[in-house]
Design a protein around this nucleic acid. Sequence first.
DNA 1: GCGACAG
DNA 2: ATCTTGTCGC
Length: 224
Amino acid sequence: MQVRRLHDWPATVAEAEAIQQRFRPLVELDEPGPDQVELVAGLDVAYSAGDERVTAAVVVLRVPALEVVERVVVSRPVRFPYVPGLFAFRELPALVEALEKLSTTPELLICDGYGLAHPRRFGLACHLGVLAGLPTIGVAKTAFIGTYQTPAPERGSWSPIMDGDEVVGRSLRTRSDVKPVFVSQGHRVGLDNACRHVLRLTPAYRLPEPIRQADHLSRTGQDA
DNA sequence: GCGACAG
DNA sequence: ATCTTGTCGC
């Protein structure tokens, strides 16, 4: 599939922040987004050689069967330090490259990390969504910004993630009695819809199947 | 000013 | 993220 190249990759923190400020207005958050989708892609990256190489993986699944349609793995040198709020710049180059090698075009992207729930409202999921021009959802495993109440223990229960007066995402229980995940809007998907998709894609484990499989693939390099 | 801080 | 053994529980 095609991914728009809207800017060059930054070399400094100041450049990276400027890019986030500049492209944040392109994020679309008001539409409810797709209800039914057939092809969903999960994306994740793994680091190796002591933080010197990054391996990105994309796994496309067919919904609702969750059968694998396509897998892509890309490895390259890391070219940006880890800075909270800017970690998209470590992972995006490899993720974009992996997306471009896809022979199919998914209708929805699920990323490992945050979207709207970000210091400048432009986390990885927003950034990737804008570049790919596709509905995108962010699913993170640990807290970042904002505050939230622990959701009830049953699968499906949730509580809003608040940053001041703003709702920036949800802490969502994808499995009963298991630590919740953090869902936030990326691009062209409403928060309600995002959580519905995440639950539908999470039949057995804590993480949505597309991300879980991409995670596995990024570490092993080959078949899951 | 001091800590916390997606992966 | 990554470095790592054993261990509790379904």
